[in-house]
């Protein structure tokens, strides 16, 4: 971490509003993108997660050690907040049996070369059923282990593994359809 960043974080630890604003301006776009991914692009939910995350950041910034990555720390806070949000909403949500809703498409062998933009991928991930999306985001993008995912989401370890496998197939189906449409056009 650079000296300027350390000074900025130190100023935030002292509660200096100018430093807080600067940190917010610098890291909010990254945090909002993460929040959007976890809410399947539902902007209102993502805004709530972002706001909640920043309050947690400024409340607990004194516990942050300069030896760690600040961006990684912020990302982890957003993910944890999104998980809390997801679990809170899950209590009231109607649970779909995704296996019956969507048939799994062709397997990964169909893709010889991947050529999708980030927006296309983000759009495809947002179409994943919520449970699949959570596991996929946590495992593939954030790098969580299945044990951590199971603990965080309150699911079985094998459920996490099977959901990831299904999420991959599901995503490939979406991407396959996207590329077919692009070819036709």
């Amino acid at each position: 971490m650079e000296a300027a960043d350390i000074n900025l974080i130190e100023a935030c630890k002292k509660g200096e509003p100018r430093a807080q604003r600067e940190v917010y301006a610098r890291f909010s776009p990254m945090m909002f993108a993460v929040a959007l991914r976890y809410t399947n692009n539902a902007r209102t939910d993502a805004e709530d997660i972002l706001q909640e995350s920043w309050i947690k950041v400024f409340r607990h910034i004194k516990s942050f050690s300069e030896h760690n990555s600040f961006e990684g720390w912020l990302r982890r806070i957003v993910v944890n907040t999104a998980i809390t949000h997801y679990r809170r909403n899950q209590k009231h949500a109607f649970q779909l049996d995704v296996d019956e809703v969507y048939a799994t498409p062709a397997d990964l062998e169909a893709f010889k070369e991947l050529d999708f933009t980030r927006e296309e991928l983000a759009s495809a991930i947002a179409q994943l059923p919520k449970g699949y999306g959570m596991v996929f985001n946590m495992y593939v993008i954030e790098g969580f282990k299945h044990k951590e995912i199971a603990e965080q989401l309150g699911i079985d370890l094998n459920t996490s593994k099977s959901q990831l496998s299904r999420a991959r197939k599901y995503l490939q189906g979406i991407l396959n359809n996207m590329s077919k449409r692009a070819t036709k056009a």
């Binding site: 909010s28 776009p29 945090m31 993460v34 991914r37 805004e47 593939v140 993008i141």
Partner: peptide, 15 residues
Amino acid sequence: DQYVRSQFREEAAMP
């Protein structure tokens, strides 16, 4: 997984 991860390395969206 590697491909997807690399695509989201510099993700950003203005709130």
